[in-house]
Amino acid sequence: MWLYAARRLLMTIPIGLGVTVICFALIYLAPGDPVQSLLPPDATAKDVAELKHAYGLDKPIPVQYLIWLGHALTGNLGRSIQTNQPVLDEVTRALANTIPIAVISVILAFVIALGLGILAATRVGGILDRLATGVAVLGISVPQFWLGVILVIAFAVELGWLPATGMGSSGSEHFSWFKWSEAKYAVMPIIALTMTPLGILMRTTRSSIAEMLALDFIQTLRAKGLSNAAIVIHAIRNALPQILAMFGLQLGYLIGGSILVETVFTWPGTGFLLNKAILTRDIPLLQGTILVLAMAFVLINLVVDLLQTAVDPRIKRA
């Protein structure tokens, strides 16, 4: 197991480097001279030349990449064109708002999916199974941003129970999760984020547990006279590594893919930051945010894989 862990850790390095290559290449995808996209539109020719030199953009591309990589590794992701703040500061501030809603959403989705998925798997073909399957299909088919709009229409416009957007009067700096007057701003973003992982996790739970229940060892347990509940617990224990892997993946997807929901609710997280970067064509901000989010995803995958190895003694993949 330790050997596998070490190998898995080593495998992360080339992936991480690959991610930096893609992020670096983003500047070259942008139409026009990369220097132009790094500077405000009213920059003078002297500014352009200075920046070209400062960034080493007058050097060959592989050298440019190495310089950029060196900066990125030391936490220097450049400055936002719009705010002139270091990109890293902007991203970490935004991450602090994205991580809580993503974590809460995934846990919520996990709990509901596990509950409904188990109920469905033990009653394949029954009404509850059909209901759970329906919810799952809805979850994977619904456009998150539209769900957000619908929630706003229902709970903010029509009922007036919840605030439509933002993080409340005290802003993100002093946001308190323990005061309803502020926490209520997070309710709709969390619901909107929960639906998709709920659908996917429910499908996985249902199919992996139903598959497990059809296996021979379950028959043996049944023959031994174990109660239904005890049998289901056996099945869950065996399906857990697979479900755990999905859990981690979904958390990564939510943290990296929160742009639509955060845009609908103007929730000042990383997704909102990305949207701002796109609207203002702030390429350094876009590049830096994407780099941090992708690295977070790589890291989450690593942790999940290692946890899976620890949880499931059958995985001795070294």
Binding site: G18, I22, I27, I259, N301
Partner: peptide, 24 residues
């Protein structure tokens, strides 16, 4: 396959936003 793995390091929405946001 290792080159493809690099793309799996991005959640699909993030990858789409990264490419689309840069391309315009």
């Amino acid at each position: 396959m290792r080159s493809m793995d690099v793309f799996f390091a991005f959640p699909s929405v993030l990858l789409a936003v990264a490419i689309s946001g840069s391309l315009g």
